[in-house]
Simulated assay, not measured.
Amino acid sequence: MSSTLFQKLLGAPFFRLPTAVRMLHSIRGHGKYAGRATITRGRNPIARLCATIAGLPRTAVDVPTTVEFHTDASGEIWQRDFGGFRMRSRLRDCGGQLGERMGPMQFRFALNVHDGAIWWQTVGVRLFGLVPLPASWFADVRCREREHEGRYEFLVEASMPLIGSLIRYEGWLEPA
């Protein structure tokens, strides 16, 4: 049986992660998780415009959240639903880094395991897959995945120089 995307990218540290995190990233084929999330969009009008263009969800508190995972040999598709707002992304291996395509943006992340959590750190960004954007603009785009009280928990924060916070969303998920 071949490795899943996160097993491949993280190697041995993957197998030392807490159970809830390992289970979510061990899905093969199709899987579905459900939980709750709180989303906070930035207040700056330019930040709001950037979040809209990127297809990010609107501000909401404690909304029902589902994520459907479709995995195959070429990567994973994550279909998120935050209280009716859908957000889709495609993840794949980009030369040992995690590539995520979301709307017109294509991100590359370095993945690290620290204190039982997976940390995503932005190392590259392209617009429409063609136009490279300065990585320094996206240094404050990051994600943390961990287990808390037996459940998978996520935190995603994105802010940019001069315009501040674009979005912050956090919550928990369990197998549905």
Score class of each variant (00 low, 15 high):
L9C: 05
L10P: 14
L10M: 11
G11R: 08
G11T: 04
G11A: 11
G11C: 06
A12W: 00
P13D: 10
P13Q: 09
F14N: 08
F15P: 11
F15H: 15
F15D: 14
F15W: 15
R16D: 13
L17S: 08
L17Y: 13
T19S: 10
T19V: 08
A20G: 06
R22W: 09
R22N: 06
R22I: 02
M23A: 14
L24N: 03
L24R: 15
L24T: 02
L24C: 04
S26E: 10
S26W: 03
I27L: 08
I27G: 06
I27K: 13
I27H: 13
I27M: 10
R28H: 14
R28C: 04
R28A: 11
R28W: 11
R28K: 15
H30E: 12
H30S: 13
K32Y: 05
Y33P: 05
Y33S: 06
Y33G: 03
Y33D: 03
A34K: 15
A34D: 08
A34Q: 14
A34V: 14
A34S: 15
G35H: 03
R36V: 04
R36K: 14
R36D: 04
A37S: 15
A37H: 04
A37F: 09
A37E: 05
I39V: 15
I39C: 08
I39E: 07
T40M: 11
T40P: 00
R41F: 07
G42P: 06
G42A: 06
G42N: 02
G42T: 00
N44T: 01
N44R: 01
N44Q: 09
P45H: 04
P45Y: 05
I46N: 04
I46V: 15
I46Q: 08
I46Y: 13
A47K: 02
A47M: 02
A47R: 01
R48A: 10
R48H: 11
L49Q: 10
L49D: 03
L49G: 07
L49N: 02
L49P: 05
L49C: 07
